[in-house]
């Protein structure tokens, strides 16, 4: 019997668009054709880079760029990528999006990109400050109450993730919720079900931070985790 769980999914209590971890992603649309360089940072340290070629001739509308694999030199992103042996080059259509995400490890990545021919100018895209058209999305697994903030400012809203119980039918999470950050002040509380996606549409200079606050009785179900277990059958298998 074996099950190596992706423990980061279970342990995470903070989700930050400017410090990407598993379950979250940032999407950006490059609207001008050309080659862009993307610098990938982990814990504020430059780790690796890749290129994105944007052209109307490119068929792909999505380049999924997995940042932990990129740092390790593993090409885990198939869609929209090409296979340069040294520096990855992703190709997308001008109408498409580059989607940055993490699927291994503790993450804490952010990216900065600039138009390659205009080196020296400011970054065109910095995932620590999302602007209009940029998206930050995530899938929350742990039920409970979360606090939603923009950067280090005061809380914007509360987010409640309701627990699901095993039912007779297979649970399929409902469709993702879209939230306009420009409208979020009107929302007292955002409700989600476990594993339901949520997408934040940035307004200007946004950094979405979501902190887990509590898993009170209302949202929590189940027992405390067990640290280890011995069973006769497992012992026999050695």
């Amino acid at each position: 019997m074996s099950a190596k769980i992706n423990r980061h999914l279970i342990k995470q209590t903070r989700f930050d668009s400017g410090s990407l971890t598993q379950l979250g992603f940032v999407a950006h649309q490059y609207k001008t054709s050309g080659r862009y360089k993307v610098d990938v940072y982990r814990e504020n340290e430059l780790r690796t880079s890749c290129y994105i070629d944007v052209d109307t001739d490119n068929e792909s509308l999505q380049a999924s760029i997995e940042l932990s694999g990129l740092e390790l030199g593993i090409n885990t992103s198939k869609k929209g990528s090409c296979c340069d042996s040294n520096v990855k080059i992703y190709k997308i259509n001008r109408e498409g999006y580059a989607l940055f995400y993490v699927n291994k490890g503790a993450g804490k990545y952010h990216v900065k990109s600039y138009y390659l021919e205009s080196r020296g100018e400011s970054y065109l895209f910095d995932s620590t400050t999302l602007n209009k058209g940029d998206l930050f999305g995530l899938t929350l697994l742990r039920p409970g109450r979360y606090q939603l903030r923009d950067g280090n400012s005061n809380p914007l809203s509360s987010l409640v993730v309701e627990a699901v119980k095993p039912l007779e039918k297979k649970y399929v999470p409902p469709e993702a919720i879209n939230v306009e950050l420009s409208e979020i002040h009107k929302m007292k509380e955002i409700s989600l079900l476990q594993a339901q996606g949520i997408i934040f549409n940035a307004k200007s200079d946004n950094r979405v931070i979501i902190d887990f606050e509590d898993d009170d009785e209302k949202h929590q179900c189940g027992d405390r985790p067990i640290a280890a277990r011995w069973t006769k059958s497992n012992a026999k298998r050695g």
Binding site: V164, P166, K170
Partner: peptide, 24 residues
């Protein structure tokens, strides 16, 4: 028992979620 053994180390909410998605 096999399912329980597989997921024993997870918190209850994670077990429930996994069971719900695999479900049952």
């Amino acid at each position: 028992n096999a399912i329980d053994d597989l997921l024993f180390f997870l918190p209850g909410w994670a077990k429930d979620l996994i069971s719900a998605i695999l479900g049952p």
